[in-house]
Design a protein around this nucleic acid. Structure first.
Lengths: 299, 299
DNA sequence: TAAGGTCATAGCCTAAACCTATGGCCAATG
DNA sequence: CATTGGCCATAGGTTTAGGCTATGACCTTA
């Protein structure tokens, strides 16, 4: 669902948070490289959008009202995510030039790395990090041919010639919308799942292949697809307001499970889990920046 | 630090995520209530800002490129926070009209409630929640005079006539920037802390009073203030690039501790911790919506 | 009392964003 | 094979939002 037409812009929230931090509109304006009247006007516009007074102006500066303090706290959460995106983008664009070159698989790059890189970038300003997103086999290839210093992959198979470090786990789980009949049962036999039309990713995707392999191991055929979509997001939102289940990475729906907008269904005898590992060439010494990144992940 | 001049707007990211979810620019445009060419142009603008192709266009719709999938995942994190702010704002503005009226103290409203309300609002669309922010004694007053159904406070004192439920803990801790001499020691005696000029909140603030009370209990005088600031944010950023310690709520600096941009200093013999409690009038039955909210906090 | 900081207002101007109308393209359908 | 109906892109015109400079009113501090 869209955010609505009169939602404040990131730039305005950013400016407002700066005002709160720096204690005056003028200083915040300077920090953002705009003229003071512009900043003043933006803040007033923001106040009208939100329908509340955020700052108490005085000739000696501006301090936030009670409402302002609260809104600033909320805005900071948004800005934190924005900085994470920025860090991720910079890593993306650095590509070949970085001091630390990371290759990561899809799921990790999408749901975990932004947070990790965001933290890391704030703690190591000035260090540049390059990020390449690929599938697991390509990640390993990049490590061997020297195109990357550190890799992140999800895999079940043993690794040769690579040192590794466990950084998390992922799991494929069945989920339905709260209105679905399964939502009250919370558990179904695997045969029922296999016989139910699912929303799925397209044939050939890692998620779908893992599911089909797990079913085949139980002598069950592949599930029929009632809807076949090209991205995890599309699958998720189709399940959110549709009435079909899907089997999807837990990481991709963690927020929805938390919020209760999707319900996890336990499937008896079906457990598809993958370790998330940091990997690097056994012989090459790990660059110092990589060591620090790994340290920051294990604290 | 500001986000930079050419950071994508929230509206553009929102639109792009919709395109990924809905599978076509046209549908996303309709969902956002703008004309298709406008949406198309916004997306192209976004692509030029980020310096990468996000969508693969075709006469049958648009699907994200690899980079697009990753960026969409990152953008979703920002939008999640934005929706939390929106939920908080709506609760703020509902004020008297809501079906569930919450009164919360500062720290909780700023650092915990947005997340809680964000989840809750997504799981209970249509229910309106009113939020009032005040200090702990006012919160209790609001419960007694019927102005609020449910309160959230941090307190150490026992409560009369109120039922309560523990929802977390807060703690005042000493922190310094990584460049500060204490950063390597990680621990100092309480006498040293008491003798060191600190960045503090203004006199009368809850944080400062709690610190002074804890020091007084050890027969130590109040700390001298090298800098006295009117908001938690201001204190935090002063410590971030200054060279003085502060004593501050752990919740307020959790992200910075994670990132390593602030270092926690253990102070021997000094432990100032407060329980965070949900409270409500003992006699009045808790409204059903309040029960559901409390349930969602304890899962 | 003068100086230096605060924020607000006024007036102008530019640039960005929107809309409607149109055209090219492909896929599904008769 | 042609037609229809979805998709996206382009063009041109209009509006609006946001920026800047210049100025004024106000308070604090030296």
């Amino acid at each position: 669902m869209p955010l609505g037409p009169s939602f404040p812009e990131l730039a305005s929230l950013d400016l407002f948070v700066s005002v709160v931090e720096l204690g005056s509109v003028s200083r915040a304006a300077a920090a953002h490289g705009v003229a003071q009247p512009s900043a003043s006007s933006r803040i007033r516009h923001l106040e009208r959008q939100l329908g509340m007074i955020l700052l108490e102006r005085s000739p000696s500066g501006s301090i936030p009202t009670d409402a302002g303090v609260v809104v600033a706290g909320w805005a900071e959460a948004i800005l934190r995510s924005a900085h994470e995106l920025k860090a991720g983008l910079q890593a993306f664009q650095a590509e070949q030039s970085g001091r630390l070159r990371i290759a990561a698989s899809f799921t990790i790059a999408e749901y975990l790395l932004p947070q990790w890189l965001g933290r890391f970038a704030r703690a190591h300003p000035g260090d540049s990090i390059a990020l390449e997103v690929a599938n697991s086999t390509s990640v390993i290839e990049r490590l061997h041919d020297g195109g990357a210093d550190l890799g992140f992959i999800e895999t079940t198979s043993p690794l040769t010639d690579l040192d590794e470090h466990l950084v998390g786990t992922d799991e494929l789980i069945a989920v339905v919308a709260p209105a679905h009949p399964w939502a009250n049962r919370r558990t179904v036999p695997v045969e029922t799942l296999a016989a139910t039309p699912l929303v799925t990713r397209e044939a050939g995707s890692g998620t779908r292949e893992a599911l089909e392999a797990a079913l085949a191991a139980l002598d069950l055929g592949p599930p029929t697809a009632i809807l076949e979509l090209g991205s995890t997001s599309a699958v998720r939102s189709a399940v959110l307001d549709g009435n079909s289940p899907t089997v999807i990475s837990r990481l991709a729906v963690a927020a929805e499970l938390d919020a209760g907008s999707l319900i996890e269904i336990e499937v008896k005898d079906l457990a598809i889990s993958r370790s998330l590992r940091a990997v690097w060439p056994r012989r090459n010494p790990l660059p110092p920046l990589a060591v620090q990144l790994l340290d920051s992940l294990t604290i």
